[in-house]
Amino acid sequence: MRAVVQRVKNASVKVDGELIGEIGRGIMLLLAVNVDDEDKDFNYIFSKILNLRIFDDEKGLMNKSLKDEGLELLVVSQFTLYGDGRKGNRPSYIKAAKAEKATYYYEKFIEEAKKEGIKTDHGKFGANMEVSLINDGPVTILLDSSKDF
Score class of each variant (00 low, 15 high):
S145H: 01
L61V: 04
L19D: 01
G70M: 08
F79I: 07
D16I: 06
F149V: 09
M62H: 10
K87P: 05
A127P: 09
V131K: 07
G137V: 04
L66F: 10
E38C: 01
V8E: 06
D136A: 08
A97G: 04
F109W: 09
T80A: 04
K124D: 00
L142T: 03
D56P: 09
T103K: 11
N51K: 04
N128P: 00
I141V: 11
F125T: 02
I134S: 04
L133D: 03
A32F: 13
D56F: 09
N51T: 12
K64E: 06
Y106A: 07
D36V: 14
G24A: 14
A11K: 08
I110G: 01
E111V: 12
Y82M: 12
N43Q: 06
G60C: 05
E130Y: 01
V75K: 04
L143E: 04
L133T: 08
D84P: 03
I23C: 08
M62L: 15
E38M: 03
A127T: 08
A11E: 14
N63S: 10
F46R: 07
D144A: 09
D136E: 14
E111H: 11
T103L: 07
I54R: 10
G70D: 09
N51D: 15
I134N: 05
I20Q: 01
L61K: 07
M129H: 05
G117Q: 05
G83N: 07
D148N: 13
N34T: 12
E58A: 09
L61H: 12
D37G: 12
K98D: 12
M62N: 13
A97V: 10
F125L: 12
D148K: 15
E112Y: 14
N10I: 02
E69H: 05
G21V: 15
K87T: 10
R7P: 15
K108H: 13
R90C: 09
K114F: 02
D16P: 08
G26A: 02
T103P: 00
